[in-house]
Write a protein that binds this DNA or RNA. Sequence first.
DNA 1: CCGCCAACCTGATCCAGGTCAACGCGCGGC
DNA 2: GCCGCGCGTTGACCTGGATCAGGTTGGCGG
Lengths: 248, 248
Amino acid sequence: MDAGTSHRPQPIADDGDDFNFCSTCAFSAACLKHGYDKGQLRELHVLVEHTEPYHEGEYIFREGDRFEAIAAVRSGTVKTFVNDIEGREQVQGFFLPGEVIGLSGISEARYPSNAIALESVVLCRFSFSSMAMLATRMPGLQQQLFRLLSQDINKAALLAGNYSADERMAAFLVSLSRRYAARGFSPNRFRLTMTRTDIANYLRLAAESVSRGLRRLQDDGLIRVDRRDIELVDRPALESLARTILRD
Amino acid sequence: MDAGTSHRPQPIADDGDDFNFCSTCAFSAACLKHGYDKGQLRELHVLVEHTEPYHEGEYIFREGDRFEAIAAVRSGTVKTFVNDIEGREQVQGFFLPGEVIGLSGISEARYPSNAIALESVVLCRFSFSSMAMLATRMPGLQQQLFRLLSQDINKAALLAGNYSADERMAAFLVSLSRRYAARGFSPNRFRLTMTRTDIANYLRLAAESVSRGLRRLQDDGLIRVDRRDIELVDRPALESLARTILRD
DNA sequence: CCGCCAACCTGATCCAGGTCAACGCGCGGC
DNA sequence: GCCGCGCGTTGACCTGGATCAGGTTGGCGG
């Protein structure tokens, strides 16, 4: 991750009641759930560095950068992608508040992809080596890391199948909706923080197909689209379209 | 994993020089590389259970089964897959000797897919909870587990892109070749242990397209096909076709 | 206010790969 | 030997989505 002066760590409060300042941070949340006490949480928070905001278009890490840290998104959206031989962008994922980026860098000690801020983004950055060391003393933390990694394996398997453009669009919208809901945002009205082209590169469609897909869903009364604002109107119908992909 | 009588564990030799009996086991290999001594290796081997052979078509685990163990393939080939709503098989991977199955089960404590033996298969089975516990005392083992998990994330990302049928076929063959080579098998002559349909379901193609793809590669002089026996004739050409996908 | 540009939408055409149908071939059972 | 049956191959045709080519909209700088 860039160590540029614009992202120097902010001071971390070490006074007991301030743990909640990082309430969107997946690890803290997980550890709380697993019943760790404040002392142990403080140990975890010593490893955390809250970055200053990355602004839109700024790189968080680049393909080939040395892997040192993973990060939980605190606010904003992060896009990860690689460029194939012909320079076309392959979007691998969008990361919303509470989600963790960088895990794929572990195996080679380098990030295998780029991560870029789609809007103003603040991260909780964790030194991975320190965290791994801490995990040897906190089995719950180790478990949580294993779980996060395993989740990502399953997530990637979703993109894989050969589904129709409409199924992909529906699954994409439903997935966003659920993830927003899980973080306390409205599940039925949200804003697409990425361009149509980004969505297309993620769903392995042409940008035109995304456009037509959204239009078709709107014409069929499943959603309402106004530029980047989306309203899910007929959730059951969307879910049923998405079911082939999301498998629940 | 099935605990049926036909797969009861074989006795584990606890005499020092027998560690190599598990030379295809990824963990032993990894630990040796990281300089662990025999005492620590013995601890690891206590967790290992060498299964009796699964025969062709036999399930190793099923979607929804309780996750308890991961396993390294000692011999044979394992296919993992899920069935989509219409019952069509989505193959997620083929696992050759030395490769590890079951990691995707960690996040939900259940296997999210099925694993089946494509031919006679012997496994090294590791209780995951014991292994995680041991990992808290062996940082190198923990690291190796993180690395394995992270690898799988990246592996899954490969299937994702929208590539042509020929690129997919070439990448598939090159990948098999490299993996066989890494285990000391011939890289240029090997046997496809799976049906054309399996390959098709893995590459998200129709079986007919796989057939035609192989034929085209043969007509162009890149490979020789005789039923399930494959010979890679023009490796550079194959590699260059595969490069878009394998990215090296 | 205008001009510009990126993002987005829409229609026309094309083609890779899916689908359907038929056939070959090798192997196990009897 | 002969049958039956997966598996694999091949050919003919069809179609979903890519590609190409404009056209629209809205936000921003001057």
